[in-house]
Amino acid sequence: MAQKRKIPQRKCIVTNEMKPKKDLIRIVRTKEGDIFVDETGKKNGRGAYLSKDKAVIDKAEKTGALNRQLNGEVDAAIYDELREIVDGKKA
């Protein structure tokens, strides 16, 4: 019998829900302090996960949840990029 692989679970920092990693978007802060969207989920740095949901992204921007989680200032362009990913404009 083939062994079923365990699906990695991650927690959305806004909703606190555990979800499969592929259902979330990872945002990373590197040691240099650069903050960007990590679509591969494999880049080095401090990662935070958000649900692929516009309301969640809006709430993260409003509450500054990402700033706290990543100990840095998250640029508005990052939120725009996240919304594009959710809309499916960016693969």
Rank of each mutant, 00 (worst) to 15 (best):
K11D: 03
A2E: 11
E61R: 15
R68D: 09
E81A: 13
N44A: 14
A60T: 10
V14N: 01
V28Q: 09
L66G: 02
G33Q: 11
E84H: 12
E39Y: 09
G72M: 09
I7T: 15
A76Q: 12
G45V: 07
M18L: 14
K90N: 05
Y79E: 05
Y49I: 05
D58S: 13
L82D: 04
K52D: 02
D87A: 12
G33W: 08
V37C: 12
I25Y: 05
L24Y: 02
Q69R: 14
D75K: 15
R10V: 07
M1T: 10
G47I: 04
K42G: 08
R68M: 06
P20D: 01
D75T: 08
I25P: 03
E81I: 06
A48R: 02
A65W: 01
N67V: 02
G47M: 05
P8W: 07
T63S: 14
R83E: 11
M1Y: 06
Y79P: 03
K89H: 10
D23L: 10
Q3F: 03
K31V: 11
E61W: 05
M1C: 10
D75S: 15
K54H: 11
E17S: 11
E39H: 07
S51W: 00
G41K: 08
L70I: 10
E17I: 01
N71G: 13
K19Y: 02
V74L: 07
E32F: 00
A77T: 12
A76P: 14
G41Y: 09
L24Q: 03
K90H: 03
G41P: 09
K52Y: 02
V86C: 07
R10W: 04
Y49C: 04
K4G: 00
E39G: 02
L50M: 05
L70P: 06
